[in-house]
Simulated assay, not measured.
Amino acid sequence: MKRSLEQRLLEGPVICGEGYLFELERRGYVQAGSFVPEVALDYPEALKQTYRDYMLAGSDVVLAFTYNGHREKMRIIGKEDLLEPLNRQAIRLAKEVAKEHPVEEALVAGNISNTNLFDSNDKEGKETIRAMFAEMVTWSKEEGVDFVNGETFYYYEEAKIALEEIQKQGLPAVITLGLMSEGILRDGYTVQEACRLLEDQGALVVGMNCFRGPATMQPYIEKIRTSVNGYVGALPVPYRTTEEHPTLFNLPDGGCSCTLPTETTFPTSLDPLYCNRYELAEWAKKAKGIGVNYFGLCCGASPSMLREVAETVGRTAVNSVYSPNMEKHFLFGSDESLKANNTAYRTKA
């Protein structure tokens, strides 16, 4: 029998591969802008391969790609009739891939996320949001997920509604918050206050994901770690955010020589602003050092980046056999069988 999420957390760090949204856009299967996961229905094999790539790179979890697959997003693109089929298909594909893990069957997580509808003063709107979460979590339960991941909430109260609907189905909950540049959730809570409340209300894992890169997320993760007793999750975006530009939404690119079609580098011109894998490893080392339990990377992450994080926190991925090893590189290698006239040329290459 495969271990539950809680059993795995008790035994050491858990890795969750996220980042499908940007990765599948990069591969040509998601439209930037609307960012709706229609790929689950249109190109199921492409989604399965993406799931597989992240799992083999170290993810303990195959997270069903239903981020933005909620009723509001489907309304905007005029495809509400595909809402349930999309959700069920994404979970079924995740279950198929999870069973392929050669060591231990991966966990499968349902996924709900920010609706972009929340208004603290709109009681009717809150019930609409509750109904949206309820149907998605019900489908997750019926399809047999191991837990539900509720993510990228920038209102505490919306996260609380999500948690309540997950609990109604008797499923473990991972709840992570997205923090914009103000450094406070939009309904006035600090992330550490919100995480403490969510933990008290029964979330198995609390923490942060998305919006912020390692440099600008880590200080808040440290506050969360000192404020809660249980498991803490951290899943930053792999971009070089700064104090001046703390989120990926407004990162400038001073080296760009063309006029961008968008107001900012987000979402399709962020490429030069990536952290490299060793910067991500340094972050993962710090995060593990303060007691983070649930690791991952969010929008923009590639499988090789996730593998670096997994290996840094002490895990060996299935595809760790393909981790970098420069010993046999023709120019920079150290193997004695390499041709000396090549290795001697490395400083002039």
Rank of each mutant, 00 (worst) to 15 (best):
L9A: 02
L9I: 02
L10V: 14
L10P: 09
L10A: 15
L10G: 14
L10K: 15
E11S: 11
P13F: 00
P13Y: 02
P13T: 04
V14A: 01
V14R: 08
I15W: 03
G17W: 00
G17M: 00
E18W: 12
E18T: 14
G19K: 08
G19N: 07
G19W: 10
Y20D: 09
Y20L: 13
L21D: 04
L21E: 06
F22R: 08
F22W: 09
F22P: 05
F22C: 09
E23V: 06
E23W: 04
E23L: 12
E23D: 13
E23A: 13
L24S: 07
L24H: 04
L24P: 02
R27C: 08
R27I: 10
R27G: 09
G28N: 09
G28A: 09
Y29A: 06
Y29T: 00
V30I: 15
V30T: 13
Q31C: 15
A32L: 15
G33P: 08
G33M: 11
S34K: 15
F35A: 10
F35Y: 13
V36K: 02
V36S: 00
V36N: 05
P37A: 01
P37S: 10
E38M: 15
V39Y: 02
V39W: 08
V39D: 01
A40D: 05
A40I: 05
L41F: 02
L41R: 08
D42S: 15
D42T: 14
Y43D: 15
Y43T: 11
Y43N: 14
Y43P: 06
P44E: 04
P44K: 03
P44V: 06
E45G: 05
E45Y: 06
A46N: 10
L47F: 08
L47Q: 05
K48L: 03
Q49E: 15
T50A: 14
T50Q: 13
Y51K: 05
R52Q: 01
R52T: 06
D53G: 07
D53A: 13
Y54C: 00
M55Y: 07
L56V: 11
L56K: 13
L56P: 08
A57S: 12
A57H: 03
G58K: 01
G58R: 10
G58S: 02
G58M: 09
G58A: 03
S59N: 05
S59R: 00
S59K: 01
D60W: 03
D60H: 12
D60I: 07
V61D: 08
V61N: 02
V61F: 00
V61M: 04
V61W: 00
V62P: 02
V62M: 00
L63C: 10
